[in-house]
């Protein structure tokens, strides 16, 4: 458990630092109109506010919980910290979409094409959010089935048994499953808001679509990060417990049938580290440019595109 918290505490400043560098280094292209500039400013400000909420929630959550007494529920609360931060992040992004600048002036323009969530959401990041969620769900269900008391795992052998915990059985699994589902639903809801928000006046439809994709990418980067960290934590803790019952607890020094437990434990821990690295690296994936009808790439992106 402590190793997972240490990983989170170490990665948080790294992600915040890299994010700050990305924000400060980026110089957006000139906007095609005042309305477009205002829309981009709005999107940028909302994103910065959402990022502050995300990182502050994580830092405060981890700080408070690691300093508190280790009772039975501390593990649940620690596991819920990324999801809670993700919900705060998505809520701010959603508020930003609801307060999107309305069309003004007497001349109004709108594209005569239908927009769906798939049009505005970058496929790779959206798939990553679903992938981390599925990985968390499958792991939690498997762990729930493998655990007897919902909090630990036990291996019995001829002359005794070995147990280890914490293990993400149903005691930890149910709240984590609910939290993961809530983050995923919040993310999809905000993507719907991005697709339905008013078009930017005095900007080409391609530019408007580009700004929508920027907003979606910013949202999905944060959401997949918290879902990836949740998956990583679950996999690592489950792996550590399974490995522990595999290598220990043998009465006569011969761990009969324990090699499988140890291998599964190590594989789960490795997968956890991969999920942690993958979700952290995905935050900095470069954006694919929006190309209109085979023409030059359009770049409406501002802060942290």
């Amino acid at each position: 458990m402590h190793l997972v918290v240490v990983l989170a505490v170490v990665s948080l400043p790294l992600v915040i630092g890299a994010t700050l560098i990305a924000v400060l280094a980026r110089r957006p292209d000139p906007a095609p109109s005042d309305a477009a500039a205002a829309a981009r400013r709005h999107a940028g400000a909302v994103n910065v506010l959402a990022l502050i909420c995300l990182f502050a929630s994580m830092a405060v959550g981890l700080g408070v919980l690691t300093g508190s007494s280790a009772d039975g529920r501390q593990g649940i609360y620690l596991g819920l910290v990324p999801a809670a931060a993700g919900l705060a992040f998505a809520a701010v992004q959603g508020l930003g979409e609801l307060t999107w600048p309305r069309p003004s002036g007497t001349i109004r323009r709108a594209p005569l094409t239908r927009r769906t969530t798939s049009d505005v959401a970058p496929g790779r990041l959206r798939r990553a959010t679903w992938c981390w969620s599925a990985l968390t769900a499958v792991t939690l269900v498997a762990c729930g089935a493998a655990s007897d008391d919902g909090r630990g795992i036990t291996r019995t052998f001829t002359d005794g048994s070995a147990g280890a915990g914490p293990f993400p059985g149903w005691f930890y699994g149910v709240p984590l499953l609910l939290a993961t589902t809530a983050v995923l639903l919040a993310s999809e809801t905000v993507l719907g808001l991005v697709a339905r928000r008013p078009a930017v006046m005095d900007a080409a439809p391609e530019w408007d679509l580009g700004l929508r994709r920027t907003s979606s990418r910013r949202l999905l980067r944060g959401v997949q990060l918290v879902l990836g960290w949740t998956a990583a934590g679950v996999l690592f803790i489950a792996g550590a417990a399974v490995h522990s019952v595999g290598v220990g607890g043998s009465a006569n020094g011969i761990a009969t049938g324990a090699a499988g437990y140890a291998a599964v434990g190590i594989a789960s821990m490795v997968l956890g580290v991969v999920a942690w690295l993958g979700s952290t690296a995905a935050v900095f994936l470069p954006a694919r440019p929006v190309v209109a009808d085979g023409a030059a790439a359009l770049s409406p992106h501002g802060l942290l595109a």
Binding site: R109, A110, T113, R196, P198, A199
Partner: peptide, 30 residues
Amino acid sequence: SQVVAHASAGRLRAGDRLPTIRALAVDLGV
């Protein structure tokens, strides 16, 4: 008239989907 014009010019073809009423209203601010 503009939807008819787009259809007459061949930019809108049979089977093309138009935006939903709500989406177009939000985009235009009407």
